[in-house]
Amino acid sequence: MTALAESFLKELEAVTSTVDLRQLRSRYTGKNGVLTGELKKLPTLTPHERAAFGKQINDDKVFIEESIKEYEKQLVSKEIKTKLARDPVDITLPGCYKKPGGRHPVTIVLAEITDIFVSMGFGIEEGPEVESDYYNFEALNIPKNHPARDMQDTFYIETNCTGASAQSGEGAFVLRTHTSPVQIRVMKHSRPPLRFIAPGKVYRCDSDVSHSPMFHQVEGLVVDKNISFANLKGLLEGFLKKVFGPSVPVRLRPSFFPFTEPSAEVDMGCYFCKGNGCRVCKGTGWIEIMGAGMVDPRVFRNVGYDSDIYSGFAFGMGIERIASLKYGIDDIRLYYEGDLRFLRQF
């Protein structure tokens, strides 16, 4: 090792920062550095000496550059570590991100129900929220001046046109009281086989802890050859077990809807007391969850289907009711108050 290399090494050992290292490098390898100084001695040497001296200087240069490069790596990683150690994060401070907003429970439940039916090959249909008397009532076998109209408190729409025939859909308009008119709309423009659900807002002239003037329903319809009441039971039991768990008991009991015959109320075992009887199920152990039935032949007649060939079933459920059971919500008004403390829980 040359004296030059030795003195370099001595200086290198003393260097502790990348800044000092850069200075050391320029002192040795810079334009006016030690190595350049050494090279200036060349003209004073004999040609014979020159070759050996030149090679020696070159070796020194390579040695110095390599050493600096190597040392620099060590220094940099050491400096990063020191710097990080001097600038620690509080790992318990919250991360920086946008807090996701809340989903509306009605949307969640609606999506869940939709997914289940779509997985069974059901389509999704829609209809207007302001309906004609014909679609909302007449076509569904709810004639004018019939007590069945009392089953749903109806909002009527102010309209300029009077005397027009309700049959043409231009008569009295109502805020639809159920999603069932979508059945008529779809059957009127398509032929069996049919299977679809129709979700949407519905309106009833009623307001208290368990009734809202606006709420959401999902209607379902299946029409094909050889559809039986047993099929209705099978499908709805399967659906409710998917939503509320495989052990939930389900029962159908006779009821009355003008557009189904036979009609059924669908009850499930009370979610809260497991059938022992509580406030929610009024001590009966059962909770009414859906209405359903075989499509009434009068409805098929209204849409031009032959009830000797086709049969079908329809069902309808309230989304808020299902959401309330799932999430333990006892006041339906909470869904529409827009209270973020409520909505952000979902």
Binding site: G121, I124, R195, V222, D224, A230, K233, G234
Partner: peptide
């Protein structure tokens, strides 16, 4: 109604 069995319907596939 309790004495009627629950049977899933058999439906043909279609593009819904």
């Amino acid at each position: 109604y309790n004495n009627i069995p629950a049977v899933m319907p058999q439906l043909s596939l279609s593009i819904n």
